[in-house]
């Protein structure tokens, strides 16, 4: 178990992390989710031992590692841009962690080679060991980076935007594959991402961060359905902000027939397009803000210029005193 207590990190007057506390359970797949500048990467680097907090402590299984260097923490770190050693073959890259061990603990060359091949098989790159990183695709390089990190048998796997530099299709495949790998190997993994979809799909729990503080910790379900703050509601998934601090998801708005209904809001339809299995309707609200809603694709969508009335099926109200959920019967 990893315990962070009161972690604060300042750069000049700017607090990159402000009194952050967090517990990571064994075997958990945890996502640190937030926009750039939210402090998520700094937090990951502090857990890794690549950065050190100004205040607070980091504990691995009750043992204080706050001032321990990265090499002594038994963590595997995967970088966004792979950070592979370009002049080494793929197999040498993977075996690097074993080959730099002290003389007494260093396995024999043949053993390192065997272990590298084994790990390359694991990341489905068997037979590519003699290639150089430049000869691989982005997705393959990131898998090499992962194999390299796993070679030293870390107790904790840390991934900094691991799919950030890959195109959408590869990202999706690799995402699913990583999820499987995590389960199979029984690792504890923490990954940083700014992509809420990625966090919701992969993680057991999501830590939503903004401006150096944790906004919410919860399962993907909790974070999406029960956002604790307006920021979380806005950042995770799509949200319309209606007057009075009311937040509604596009799929929670419905069009109601007739204009005599007392409740609901009037919209002028601006644009309609197909978004997967639904019609996405963009309407202009009375205060000129844009409201998005989804309409079942089997229904006839409204036309641009139409005036429609919409009503939230389910909404969340944020006031200065707290958050409240509403559900339409």
């Amino acid at each position: 178990m990893i315990t962070l207590q009161g972690i604060t990190k300042r750069y000049g007057h700017y607090a990159a992390l402000d009194n952050v506390s967090l517990e990571v359970r064994d075997g958990e797949f945890l996502a640190l989710l937030g926009p750039s500048g939210s402090g998520k990467t700094t937090l990951l680097r502090i857990i890794a031992g690549l950065a050190f907090p100004d205040e607070g402590s980091v504990q691995f299984n009750g043992e204080d590692v706050t001032h321990l260097k990265v090499a002594d923490r038994k963590v595997g770190f995967v970088f966004q841009h792979y950070a592979l050693f370009k002049h080494m073959t793929v197999a040498d890259n993977v075996g690097f962690g074993l080959s730099v061990r002290k003389r007494g603990q260093r396995p024999a060359k043949a053993q390192i080679k065997a272990r590298a091949d084994e790990l390359l098989d694991l990341v489905q790159l068997g037979g590519l060991g003699e290639r150089y990183p430049a000869q691989l695709s982005g997705g393959q390089r990131q898998r090499v980076a992962l194999a390299r990190a796993l070679a030293v048998e870390p107790q904790l796997l840390l991934l900094d935007e691991p799919f950030g530099a890959l195109d959408a299709k590869v990202r999706k495949t690799l995402r699913r594959w990583l999820r499987d790998l995590h389960k199979r190997m029984g690792l504890t993994s923490i990954f940083v991402t700014h992509d809420q979809e990625e966090a919701l799909e992969l993680a057991d729990r999501v830590v939503v961060m903004d401006h150096g503080v944790i906004e919410q910790i919860g399962t993907p379900e909790q974070v999406y359905m029960e956002p604790a703050t307006p920021f979380v509601s806005d950042f995770v998934g799509e949200t319309n902000r209606l007057p009075g601090g009311v937040h509604v998801r596009p799929h929670d708005l419905e069009i109601i027939g007739g204009t005599c209904e007392p409740d609901g809001h009037e919209l002028i339809v601006d644009n309609i397009f197909r978004k997967g299995g639904v019609w996405r309707v963009e309407g202009i609200f009375s205060d000129n803000s844009v409201v998005e809603l989804d309409v079942d694709a089997s229904l006839k969508p409204p036309s641009p210029g139409d005036s429609i009335r919409v009503r939230p099926r389910r909404s969340k109200t944020f006031t200065s005193t707290g958050a409240k959920s509403h559900e339409q019967a």
Partner: peptide
């Protein structure tokens, strides 16, 4: 990038190993 050195560091390399095996060949 500093990342390459950090990667070597996280894999347990000491400063001399980082210089001789990562930086110098590059």
């Amino acid at each position: 990038s500093a990342e390459v050195e950090e990667a070597a560091l996280s894999l347990g390399a000491n400063p001399w190993q980082i210089f001789s095996r990562v930086i110098l060949p590059a």
